[in-house]
Deep mutational scan, measured.
Amino acid sequence: MEVRTIKVFTTVDNINLHTQVVDMSMTYGQQFGPTYLDGADVTKIKPHNSHEGKTFYVLPNDDTLRVEAFEYYHTTDPSFLGRYMSALNHTKKWKYPQVNGLTSIKWADNNCYLATALLTLQQIELKFNPPALQDAYYRARAGEAANFCALILAYCNKTVGELGDVRETMSYLFQHANLDSCKRVLNVVCKTCGQQQTTLKGVEAVMYMGTLSYEQFKKGVQIPCTCGKQATKYLVQQESPFVMMSAPPAQYELKHGTFTCASEYTGNYQCGHYKHITSKETLYCIDGALLTKSSEYKGPITDVFYKENSYTTTIK
């Protein structure tokens, strides 16, 4: 009895394709271990004539594949690729409408935090270190965002349907971005203890939790000093293409032309909904596939993004 075979390709990165001759009487799992086709788990399936010449994702289970996976995804987590594939199996079914010149995501599976993050990423200057993220990001900007969303979920250790947080998501993504040249110098002034300067680099240099107003941050924000008295913390120097200011959701007025974009969060910790506000020729609110415009805006804002380049204080 002759062994019926077909020729397929296996890959971990969709760049390096490895030619395989597979036995049609055995499952993919018996031949390769966990195997995925377009995100779908085909591990328990036997090869079919229609699979001839198709590319299958496999887990990096030998040295060659491990090197290829690390170079593309910059992670050695053995569960990463499987999590990416199972997320992709959902995100490829989502709709990605162009809204006001940006790629958004039609609401499904509690994905409003991903839509808000995706919209924000198209408006701030950011370059990702893992080629996987950078490639998928370019495709997302062009309207094909399924891979990018699935990668975000995998890097953030999230599953489809789980509630997510924009600030946490951005923080994970910033860790995989090139923020080497970003720098922030802060000064804390206390009447009792004097003053202390701190220099922050990388992710810490672009994120701040405690106030939404970048102007206020430049002037000074009140913080408790270690001595128990009130101290003032203010920005001395900022070198970065953008800054992200966050605070627990509270009524906040966004003035046209003073910011790049913002995240609105309605609801409580267990259950809520994100919308995205962007400042173009007027203010726009993007909620999944829905767009509304207004000249002014007041609502429960939790993150505001500002364009920056270089700032030095005039406070002496």
Rank of each mutant, 00 (worst) to 15 (best):
E281S: 06
C271N: 15
Q195H: 12
G272N: 05
V58H: 04
T199K: 08
G267T: 14
I105G: 00
A205I: 01
E168W: 01
A132T: 01
T19P: 14
C285W: 00
F148H: 01
R184G: 09
A132C: 08
A262R: 08
D287W: 00
I45W: 15
M245K: 04
D62H: 09
S294G: 09
K293P: 11
S25N: 07
H51N: 05
R141Q: 14
S310W: 10
G272S: 08
T266C: 15
E2V: 08
E162L: 03
R139K: 13
A115R: 01
R141L: 13
D180V: 05
A231F: 02
A142M: 14
M170Q: 01
K191P: 13
L88Y: 13
Q20Y: 09
T211G: 02
F242W: 11
S279L: 03
D38M: 11
F217H: 05
Y297G: 06
N111K: 01
C285Y: 08
Y36Q: 05
F80K: 02
S263H: 12
T302C: 15
R167F: 12
E162Y: 04
K307L: 10
T19N: 12
G53V: 04
Q122H: 02
K191I: 13
L254M: 01
Y306L: 04
L121W: 01
Q230K: 10
S263F: 05
Y208F: 07
I223S: 14
V203K: 14
T292K: 11
A231I: 04
A146S: 13
E215F: 01
Q122V: 02
V67G: 13
K229D: 14
L235P: 05
A177H: 01
S310T: 01
Y138P: 10
K218C: 06
I301Y: 05
D303V: 09
K54W: 13
P47Y: 02
T76R: 13
T258E: 10
G210K: 06
L290V: 13
V21A: 12
L88H: 01
P97N: 11
L126P: 07
N89Q: 15
Q31G: 05
F56I: 05
G288T: 03
D23T: 10
N147A: 12
V236M: 11
A247L: 04
Q31P: 00
N178Y: 10
Y252Q: 14
S310I: 15
P248K: 13
L121P: 05
S86C: 15
T75S: 13
V8L: 07
Q122C: 04
V67L: 11
E264H: 06
L163K: 14
T169P: 00
I45D: 13
F148E: 01
V188P: 03
E2C: 09
Q238D: 03
T159M: 04
K54D: 07
A117K: 00
K93V: 05
Y57Q: 07
K44R: 11
P249M: 07
C112R: 09
S171Y: 14
D109C: 02
Q196K: 14
K201F: 15
T169Q: 01
K316L: 11
Q175A: 15
L88R: 03
Y284M: 10
V160N: 01
V166L: 11
F80M: 02
L291Q: 08
G161M: 02
Q270W: 09
K298M: 10
T314G: 15
Y306M: 03
E264I: 14
T278L: 10
K95D: 13
Q237D: 05
Y113E: 05
R4T: 14
N178H: 11
P78H: 14
V203G: 08
D180R: 08
E144G: 05
G29T: 01
L118E: 02
Y57E: 02
K92D: 01
P131N: 02
M1S: 04
Y57T: 12
Q230T: 13
C112Q: 08
V188T: 14
P60M: 10
P60A: 06
F80G: 00
G257A: 07
D77R: 02
T192N: 15
C190V: 01
G267Y: 11
S279I: 02
L186E: 07
V188L: 10
V189R: 09
D63Q: 02
N157V: 00
K233D: 04
L114T: 02
C156E: 01
V99Q: 06
L119Y: 03
Y84G: 00
T103M: 03
T120A: 06
P60F: 07
Q230I: 15
G220I: 01
N89G: 12
Y96C: 00
L186C: 09
G299A: 07
P249K: 07
A136E: 12
G257N: 12
G257Y: 00
V188G: 01
K218Q: 06
F9Y: 06
G228N: 05
V304Y: 03
G33C: 00
Y28E: 06
Y36S: 02
Q270L: 14
Q20H: 12
N129I: 08
L88W: 13
N111W: 00
Q230N: 08
S181V: 06
M26C: 14
A140W: 00
F80N: 00
C112N: 07
Y138L: 14
L212A: 07
K201P: 04
V22C: 11
K44C: 15
L133Q: 01
L173A: 03
C112A: 14
H176N: 05
L291W: 10
I301M: 04
G143E: 00
Q30K: 15
R184E: 09
E168C: 03
K307I: 10
H48A: 11
V206H: 03
V8E: 00
Y269K: 15
K54H: 10
V160A: 15
T91D: 00
K92L: 13
T292W: 08
F217E: 04
V221A: 06
V236W: 07
H276L: 00
V3L: 14
L114D: 02
T302K: 02
L179M: 06
T76Y: 09
P60T: 07
N129D: 09
R83A: 05
A142Y: 13
K255T: 12
G143Y: 00
G272C: 06
M24P: 12
L59E: 14
